[in-house]
Design a protein around this nucleic acid. Structure first.
Lengths: 148, 148
DNA sequence: TATGAAATTGTCAACCT
DNA sequence: AGGTTGACAATTTCATA
């Protein structure tokens, strides 16, 4: 359950450079290649390492508009299956259940204001919620590696 | 500037599996290995591909508590250098400039409620802001690949 | 965990279209 | 310009100690 310092070092490197080779990893953490290899595979199996993702530039891929959408259920007696009702909407990158005024907060990425308008309509219809949207103007930084 | 369908396919695969080999990529998009290699390198140089990151399990790495912190400047005449003033705080994973009541929204990850309390104090001191915090209870999904 | 060897993959040239 | 082939270097992977 707890993490050894070497595992932490490995995770830190992979969080900052997900395509780092085992050879480089081994050098940086001071272990043989095969030992690092085994540890990484074990961290993957344990679920500590959940996967690897390329970080894409939203503007370059034609999705320049990011927003946070707070969800407020309309029917307090309705079953709480909002994430499932919404997961088919690919524009939703993340869904958080939160302790606040809202029940959920979504992070979405779309091509334009009208695409956002359309998405909001789909969300309200699919989940029977009212929404409050916060548009992201710019992103000074994002996806910084956690202090493992 | 615009993206060809093959580039989109490559980005989609890498967004879903950042460590995918060039060999696999080539098979999936129907191109030779070296052609894919060239395209990936070019996408990296153009900044479309900003990097690669391992996705870590917050609980497993000892940072089970995620929160969103909205920032409200106290002095309206102060220069807007909040991101810079806060970037040394490693617990902050992302910083968004937003169009809403708040000026910025931070996404943070910490070990415990008291660590969050401590972080809030540091944020208020470093940036001269008041804050409003929304604690994340659970994360139904996160880091879903964008619909490139 | 390390070593070493085999299979696979990454990289780059030269060439083709 | 972008594609392919082919050759070599580097890496991944696994058996073994």
């Amino acid at each position: 359950m707890s993490l050894e310092p070497i595992d932490r070092a490995i995770l830190k490197e992979l969080a900052a450079d997900g395509r780092c080779s085992f050879t480089d990893l081994a050098e940086r953490v001071g272990l043989s290649v095969s030992a690092v290899h085994q540890r990484v595979k074990r961290l993957e199996q344990r679920g500590v390492l959940k996967g690897y993702a390329a970080r894409l530039d939203g503007e370059e891929i034609g999705l320049p508009l990011t927003a946070f959408i707070s969800l407020f259920p309309i029917d307090p007696a309705a079953p709480d299956d909002y994430p499932k009702r919404l997961e088919h909407l690919q524009q939703i990158e993340a869904c958080y259940s939160v302790a606040g005024d809202a029940s959920y907060v979504l992070r979405v990425r779309v091509a334009s204001p009208s695409a956002l308008e359309d998405l909001l309509r789909q969300i309200r219809e699919a989940a029977n919620v009212s929404t409050r949207t916060t548009v992201v103007l710019s992103t000074p930084y994002e996806d910084r590696p956690p202090a493992v």
